[in-house]
Design a protein around this nucleic acid. Sequence first.
DNA 1: CGCTTGACCGCAA
DNA 2: ATTGCGGCCAAGC
Length: 125
Amino acid sequence: MAPKTMGKGGASPFEKIYAVIKRIPEGRVATYGQVAALAGLPGRARLAGTALRETPEGLTLPWQRVINAGGKVSHRPGLGVEEGYQRHLLEEEGVVFSRGGRIDLERFGWDPDAPLSRKRGGGRK
DNA sequence: CGCTTGACCGCAA
DNA sequence: ATTGCGGCCAAGC
């Protein structure tokens, strides 16, 4: 026993990140930094990206709801993945992309403080 | 064990 | 707007 990679709690940082992503409601998006911070890893935004990149198969995660701080989708599409696949999934959830492929975090940014994903709306602004 | 790469972030020039 | 630099942790060779 004593796997040093795991200490107490047994939860490795990756698992925490996965748990946070699973909590992201539909129609909302969160940034890597946001996910990392909620996972208890402030400043480790890269871990969130690495975690998603290394996501084990069999685990269903809404990785598409995780975008970079710029409000843009990452993960360069490779062979086998259509360009804009992530964007398509988000649009299906009701997320609207601005010109240039950017998402308005002011409207679609996930609020961990909000007990109910209340639409912010209305927005006028 | 060490260097390199990576689905990042923030600031500065 | 773009480019460059530092910071952070994990996986691969």
